[in-house]
Simulated scan of single mutants.
Amino acid sequence: MNINKLEQYLSPTRFNRFLQATNHSALKAEELYGANLNVAKSFYPVLNLFEIVLRNSIDISISTHFGDSDWIINQKNGFMSDKSLMASNFYLKKSIEKAQKTITNKKVTVTSGKIIAEQSFGFWTSLFETHHFKLIGGCVIQIFNNKPKHINRNIITKKLTKIREFRNRIYHNEPICFNGTNIDFTEANQVKNEIYNLLKWIDTDLATYVQNFDSIDDEILLAMNI
C-alpha cells in the first residue's frame, strides 16, 4: 500500500511514532508497524492459553473452597455481596449479573460454565486483590502450588496486573515495540517471562505445552533487525 495512504488510514499521530523510531524512513516505519503487529499476534496463543489456565484453575480452587461447583452463581448473593465490597461497587456481582443477562438474551440456558466463559481477564485477576482475596480465605493463591515460599499475594497481584495491562494494550491495538521513541521489546520479554513463571508455578508441564505455540522470540528478533 502507498505510504501516504497507509498513514492516512492508520492516522498520522499513530504512524508518526513509527517514523520517529526509524529516523523518519517511511519504508522502515511501515516495516516496523508490520513487525509490531506480528509480535502482538505471536502473543495471542500464549495469552489465550494463560488466561484459560488461570481461569479454570481459579474456578477449581474456589469450587473446592465453597464445596460448590456452581459458586459463581450462588456466591453472587454470598461473598460477592459482602458490604465491604461497596467501595468496589460490587464489581464481581455486577459482572455475573451482566453475564447472566447476556446469556439470557441469547435464549440459552444460564449455566456456571457459560457465566465463567463470559468473564473478563480482569474478573479473575481481581480475585487476588485484598478486598476479594480475604473473603475467599485466600484460596486462589493455592493454584500456584510450585511457587517459591517468598512469593505472596502482593507479588502475584503485581505480576498479574502487568500481564493484564500488557494484554489489554495488544487487544486494543496499542504498539508494544517502544520505550519512548526507541524500538524496545524489553517489556514484551518481561511479560512473556512472567507468564511462563506463573505457568510453571501452577504446573511445569503447562509451560512446556504453551511453548509449542510460542513464536514470540522469533518475531521480536525479526523486528529488531529492521
Results as ranks from 00 to 15, higher is better:
F43M: 11
F18N: 07
K106T: 13
S61G: 03
K149S: 15
R55H: 08
D68L: 02
T130Y: 04
T186I: 07
E30A: 11
S126Y: 03
G113E: 15
G78K: 14
G180A: 00
F121W: 04
K162M: 07
N212M: 05
L92E: 08
R164T: 02
S126P: 00
G78E: 13
N154F: 12
I216H: 09
T104N: 14
K159Y: 04
K162R: 14
K5A: 13
N193I: 08
L92G: 02
A207P: 07
N182T: 09
T130A: 04
N89A: 15
Q119W: 00
N173D: 14
N48R: 00
I52Q: 03
H132R: 10
N105M: 13
E174S: 13
K162C: 04
Y91E: 08
A40R: 11
R153D: 06
T125L: 01
N56K: 05
T161I: 08
T22S: 09
Y44N: 09
L222Y: 14
N23A: 13
N225H: 13
H132I: 01
I60K: 11
E97Y: 00
R153A: 12
L221H: 09
N168S: 10
S95A: 12
L37E: 05
P12E: 09
Y9T: 12
A21P: 06
H172M: 13
K107V: 09
P12T: 05
F133M: 00
K106N: 14
D214T: 10
S112M: 10
T22E: 02
Y209M: 15
E51G: 08
S120I: 03
S215D: 11
L47N: 02
A21Q: 06
N77R: 05
A35M: 04
P148Y: 05
T130G: 00
M80E: 09
A223W: 05
G137S: 11
F185A: 07
F166W: 12
L199C: 10
I226F: 11
A87W: 00
I115V: 15
A223P: 07
K28Y: 01
T161N: 10
D218W: 10
N212R: 11
